[in-house]
């Protein structure tokens, strides 16, 4: 069997998918990054070998997410792509005709506007993370509700409570206040979803032309309450694609498939990367008062990559990205 690997190393989760030659998702893995991206990636590769039949050939690898450069170096990726493009590619192939992608992940949220299958506009949260998965996660933990049940519980609400959603801290105090007033739990949860949707649309979605078909993806799309809140706010049906939680990795794998279709060999280093000893270290450069923290990746003791310096003194020279003409 021949296929392609997509890797998305994000702040909260590390996802891997395997797609076959037709671009169908065959296997997907969702792991918590837990602040240790290398270990998470190696565990992911290990789990993937166990899932795939023995004679599988990986023909191409794509990496994305905030840890895409790290993942690209460790696994040997053919394509290293930013998460906005990856999410857009995945959405437009999985749901043809999509015009708006709402994506809410662990620590960031973005909106992507597509027209005729290509990205026309996008935005990412800048100064606020109130509407992201981490916040929902925390609130669920505080209320002692498993995050998986959050959505279903909020759907039981008949009249959502209005909660201040401008800031995560104030939203929390407002929620506590509403609890003490004696409001029902489902109403509070539904109110929280509405507050987050309001915050998202006013910040990330400000000035964007949101029109159907709308796709909602990212880890938070698991929350049915959020879907319902979006539908109420936009008055448009919101589609959640089957692999909503790993769409970044799906996009990366599809980009890898496009890339090697031109006949280039893959740079995949093999699943053996799971066993090598990778270490990330950092040091502060004392060349100037910028004091950049330079990150260093070592494989079995020898340096294979460096980055994080402003001036380029330490970083390995990355290949100039050729813009296809």
């Amino acid at each position: 069997m021949i296929g392609f690997l997509g890797i998305d190393v994000g702040s909260v989760s590390t996802n891997l998918v395997y797609i076959n030659e037709d671009g169908k998702v065959r296997e997907s893995i969702y792991l918590r990054t837990n602040g240790r991206p290398i270990a998470a990636l190696q565990r992911g590769l290990q789990e993937m070998t166990e899932l795939l039949p023995p004679k599988t050939v990986i023909r191409g690898v794509g990496a994305t997410g905030s840890g895409r450069h790290l993942a690209g170096i460790i696994a040997g990726a053919d394509v290293v792509k930013n998460e906005i493009t990856s999410h857009a590619v995945a959405a437009s192939r999985v749901v043809p005709g999509v015009r708006t992608v709402l994506e809410i992940g662990g620590q960031d949220s973005k909106i992507i506007i597509l027209r005729d299958g290509i990205v026309a506009d996008f935005a990412m949260n800048t100064v606020c993370a109130a509407g992201t998965g981490s916040f929902l996660d925390q609130q669920a933990a505080r209320l002692n509700i498993p995050i998986e049940k959050f959505g279903d519980l909020s759907l039981k609400s008949s009249s959502p409570v209005r909660i201040a959603g401008r800031c995560a801290v104030f939203a929390e105090s407002d929620m506590i206040h509403k609890q003490q007033m004696g409001y029902d739990m489902p109403d509070i949860l539904a109110g929280l979803c509405e507050a987050l949707v309001r915050n998202y649309l006013n910040n990330v979605g400000k000035g964007k032309d949101i029109s159907g078909t709308v796709v909602f993806q990212g880890g938070v799309a698991a929350n049915q309450g959020m879907k319902a809140a979006f539908e109420r706010a936009l008055n448009i049906e919101v589609i959640i694609p089957p692999h909503f939680g790993v769409m970044g990795a799906v996009g990366a794998s599809m980009l890898a498939r496009d890339h090697v279709a031109r006949g280039v060999p893959t740079r995949f280093k093999g699943f053996g990367a799971a066993e090598s000893d990778f270490r990330a270290g950092s040091f502060e450069c004392d060349g100037c008062p910028n004091m950049c923290e330079v990150v260093e990746i070592r494989k079995d003791g020898s340096v294979i990559a460096r980055w994080g310096d402003r001036c380029g003194k330490w970083s390995t020279r990355m290949d100039r990205r050729k813009i296809s003409s």
């Binding site: 930013n82 906005i84 493009t85 290509i118 990205v119 800048t126 100064v127 813009i323």
Partner: peptide, 29 residues
């Protein structure tokens, strides 16, 4: 792009790369 003392470089790079992708696709189209 809004900058201040809290701005992160990784976020900027992600946005720039995505914007350049968008422009390249536009031109090809």
């Amino acid at each position: 792009l809004i900058v201040d003392e809290q701005s992160g470089e990784a976020g900027l790079m992600t946005r720039l790369e995505a914007f350049v992708d968008l422009l390249a696709e536009n031109r090809d189209r």
